[in-house]
Design a binder for these strands. Structure first.
Lengths: 226, 226
DNA sequence: GAATTGTCGATTGTCAACAACCGACAAAGC
DNA sequence: GCTTTGTCGGTTGTTGACAATCGACAATTC
């Protein structure tokens, strides 16, 4: 009677493809605006269009792709307004994550914080731009994982995906990330400290800086849509 | 050159079905845990399984349905922990919505606020339980609409869907909603006032009350999952 | 009798063909 | 010349059939 453990869902083609497609998008292989042809992608993945379409729909609902009936699917293009929206929501949710994670912080949390920060610094020093984007988002992901809130994690993954698309596709035009080594050091130190008030205000400063930086850039180089 | 207006996407079977299915779920016709059979539903909607599966996947990604490969799809069952998660996130996001909507409030906003509140009161007085659930959520939706933040609206719709599933399926066991007439009057009055600080603290009180009420109920009547 | 194995029906996952639709270009009309 | 209309290639939307997998129950073994 104690067969509590549900079967681990076997993976299906659809899930596998969704994962691969997501990687392709989040690593900038498929760029915003570029049309995704079903027959071509299906052949490329070695499946028929059915599972591929379902995988694409998953990414549409995640907000990574946008579809117009009978006119095709493309990677989302983010406007300046979109960036502002993302950062405002991110600030609210990451603050909530810290509140919920605060009492769960332990030695393992601190260690993991240092580990991810070290990876970020290493990527920055190696001038691995895409790697440093991943590393930075991984660092920020930790607090969401620690908060132990499934829905919150899901919403973070939606935000994260959009941020990643934006940064990966535009990082060449941005400056180097070097100056942000110190910023993240402050973030990490605050997260390890005992004053949640300080953490929250540091977080808000951090977010404001990120939002200003990207919004300013979008204003310069990308057609404004809103 | 000023053909700025993109074609309004023609509706597809898939979209139409997703909408109908969503209504079925959110009105409690399809109850949590109940299996959704593809062939049966496809026949019922008069389409083949392809579009139906894509519509179901859309609802899966919205968090209304849950799927286990080769074992079927069911309406999500919410645990006590899920309810807590929803309310914590909802508090953060509705607060943000008020911050962003605050300067956009105008006469039309106030009128719409009154209109939706009147509808809520009417539903309560008519003892139309399901109607009052819809009306209450409609009332709270207004601030998200006014905030003019697409992503925030989308996240609210995710939260709203889950709340609606929970309340609609459990409202018989809950008490009448009568006592909450006054609570919403305070909410509306605060939203019309000039003090956003008061609004936020009223909102938090409002959310705490809702969370306590549902969590307590879930603890009593539903198998705890977390 | 309890646990294991085998079989079966039902359901989901996948496929390849067909139909509907869009965008672009060319021809016709004013 | 400008607008309108018609055609065409290509892409997406939809379908029905086929394959793979699961859960339950019966048969088997210890």
């Amino acid at each position: 009677m104690n067969r509590q453990i549900k079967h681990l869902p076997r993976s299906t083609f659809r899930d596998h493809i969704a994962e691969q497609l997501r990687d392709l998008i989040l690593n900038g292989v498929l760029r915003p605006g570029e049309p995704l042809l079903e027959v071509q992608l299906a052949e490329q993945f070695g499946v028929s269009r059915g599972p591929l379409r379902e995988a694409m729909r998953e990414l549409v609902d995640e907000g990574l792709l946008v579809v117009r009936p009978y006119a095709g699917t493309t990677v989302i293009e983010l406007s300046a307004k979109d960036i502002r929206e993302i950062y405002s929501i991110r600030t609210a949710l990451e603050t909530l994550a810290f509140e919920q994670a605060w009492d769960r912080r332990d030695a393992a949390f601190h260690a993991e914080l240092d580990r991810r920060h070290a990876q970020l610094v290493a990527a920055i020093d190696a001038e691995d731009e895409v790697g440093s984007i991943h590393a930075e988002l991984d660092l920020h992901s930790l607090v969401f994982e620690t908060a132990d809130n499934k829905l919150l994690s899901r919403m973070w993954s939606i935000l994260r995906g959009r941020l990643q698309i934006y940064w990966v596709t535009h990082h060449e035009a941005h400056g180097r990330r070097g100056p942000y080594r110190d910023a993240h050091l402050v973030y990490v130190e605050s997260a390890k400290g005992d004053d949640i008030g300080r953490m929250v205000s540091e977080l808000r400063r951090h977010m404001r800086r990120g939002a200003d930086r990207t919004a300013e850039f979008v204003g310069q180089h990308v057609r404004l849509q809103g």
